[in-house]
Nucleic acid binder design. Structure first.
Length: 152
DNA sequence: GCCAACGTTGGC
DNA sequence: GCCAACGTTGGC
């Protein structure tokens, strides 16, 4: 089982939106980056845990935890003409994009990007890498436990 | 809104 | 396969 950090713009989909979703679960659709696609397709397993990260907002940072409900599967929104995530190059028999279902676990006080930067044990986190633009990144067990300990 | 740091596209 | 142009991400 693995740990992840998954970014979303709260204006688009926030942790409150996830908490208020039916069954407190939602499809994490719309990933259109090949590196991230590969992680969703090959590495995501049921039972994995992920930090929910708010990006492109006044206070970027980690706001909670969610659980991965299933392995990656083809992103149906890519097949939907007119959908904002539609990709005509992704075909049902040759899917280009993948998604997973995630479920709300807990929400805590923001662990801001600034706070993450101030903790040496977290300095290797991919989120701090210059120019990092992946919307999903792996988190090491050590980083995972360290961050949880900040809010427990 | 700015802009650095990417990833993608497409002509050659 | 190269690379310029373009688009996107995301912190600030």
């Amino acid at each position: 089982m693995r740990y992840w950090l998954m970014k979303s713009e709260p204006d688009c989909f926030s942790i409150s939106d996830l908490r208020k979703s039916p069954g407190r679960a939602s499809m994490w659709d719309g990933v259109r980056n090949y590196q991230v696609r590969n992680m969703l397709r090959d590495d995501f397993k049921k039972g994995d845990l992920a930090f929910f990260y708010h990006s492109s907002c006044p206070e970027p940072g980690i706001v909670g935890v969610m659980e991965v409900m299933c392995p990656g599967y083809p992103d149906p929104t890519a097949f939907m003409p007119g959908h904002e995530h539609h990709d005509p190059k992704s075909l049902p028999d040759q899917p280009r994009w993948y998604t997973v279902d995630v479920k709300f676990k807990r929400e805590f006080d923001l662990v801001s990007l600034d706070e993450i930067r101030r903790h040496p044990p977290l300095e290797e986190m991919l989120i701090l890498r210059r120019g990092n633009r992946l919307s999903i990144t792996p988190v090491t067990p050590r980083e995972w436990e360290y961050i949880l300990a900040l809010r427990s």
